[in-house]
């Protein structure tokens, strides 16, 4: 695949991350994760361990974190698995970054519902802020990735930045979010629509209105009474 990320396995990466080990807090978490699964089923810890490792790398580099090959191998050793089995998992899931990312990993959804609701404007906002798909900005702040559906279609378009979702976006709202993040602030996650709390219908409900107040049985009206 011509545009597949090249897995960095150079000497510098080995030198920088070869001695990777859990810090004390994560070692505690790792023990807790292992305890969730029966003895002999350590393979089940692969995904939580990779996530934990990516977060620790992120904390050490003040970024969103990524998984250098020596860290993947560390996880495999911790679990007594062949390197290949963990490597397969790390490459399968797009939430594991195989190359370094910036402080904020901006993952814009471009799947159909978001696209219909204006994800192109969100991309335009990113582009104007200097973000390029698949690249990290020179200041190391943002990495932009186009992703597939993240399951927030009811409040599309949306973007995931690190662990938070920002929904009901348009060009201006996205610009505001990026500016705030650039200044080191943390914008309010979730929907950006004033007055909306979560993914409840915008405005008055139009369907099944009678069920709003009591346990109304629509079935006789539909001719499907049991």
């Amino acid at each position: 695949m011509a545009d597949a990320p090249n897995i960095p396995d150079e000497a510098e990466v080995r030198a920088r991350w070869g001695n990777f080990a859990w810090n004390s807090a994560n070692a505690e978490k790792a023990r807790e994760i292992v305890a969730r699964y029966p003895e002999g089923r350590q393979q089940s810890c692969t995904i939580p361990f990779l996530d934990l490792a990516q977060r620790q790398v992120g904390a050490e580099t003040h970024t969103q974190g990524w998984l250098p090959v020596p860290v993947i191998e560390f996880v495999a050793r911790e679990l007594g698995l062949p390197y290949m089995r963990v490597y397969e998992v790390a490459t399968f899931y797009t939430m594991f970054n195989l190359a370094p990312v910036g402080r904020y990993h901006v993952q814009v959804c471009g799947t159909t519902p978001c696209m219909l609701r204006g994800s192109d404007d969100v991309f335009a906002a990113c582009k104007n802020r200097g973000l390029v798909k698949g690249k990290t900005t020179p200041d190391g702040l943002f990495t932009l990735t186009e992703v597939e559906c993240m399951g927030n279609c009811a409040s599309a378009p949306m973007v995931q930045i690190n662990d938070d979702n920002y929904e009901d976006l348009d060009y201006d709202r996205m610009t505001v979010i990026l500016e705030a993040l650039g200044k080191g602030e943390t914008p309010k996650p979730g929907t950006q629509e004033p007055g909306r709390h979560t993914v409840e219908p915008v405005g008055e409900p139009t369907n099944l209105v009678a069920m709003m107040t009591d346990n109304h049985d629509y079935r006789p009206e539909w001719g499907t009474a049991s």
């Binding site: 695949m1 597949a4 897995i7 396995d9 062949p82 290949m84 490597y87």
Partner: peptide, 19 residues
Amino acid sequence: VEEIGAIYRGENMQITSYL
């Protein structure tokens, strides 16, 4: 010898030896 595996997913899936 668990050194052959499938990396990436979907259309991008590739069979390779470890690194």
